[in-house]
Amino acid sequence: MSDYAKPIPTPSEDSQPYWEAARNHELKLQQCAACSAFRFPPAAVCSECTSDAYEWKPVSGKARVFSFVIYHRAYHPGFKEELPYVVAVIELDEGPRMLSNVIGCKPEEVRCDMPVEVAFEDITDEMTLPKFRPA
């Protein structure tokens, strides 16, 4: 039994392959077979051209912090120990944006447009979270 106290993602039919790749410390996104756009969050069709043909492809894990906030209150008891913590909108070099944490530096050192790279955190035997650290 894990003593991990924070919420554990509940993958959907669409996102299962994303979380399976993360488990293997790989960041994979769907790439549209018609227009080559990468997309996130996972979805059955391309958000640019609506094609339903795609492949799960590894991406570089290189990114920048588009914007961020610093939580000073825990709205879930699992985050109490971590205060203050950073939640960021991460823009991957391949284009899509996702929410994640910036780790490996102090919250006050985080800046918009700061280069970051993916870092995987195994939270249970079955689940790994992609996070980002200064590159």
Partner: peptide, 13 residues
């Protein structure tokens, strides 16, 4: 309750 791409990173409210 469940969810993904937010709560696990502590994005609330």
């Amino acid at each position: 309750g469940g969810g993904e791409f937010g709560p696990e990173y502590g994005l609330y409210g």
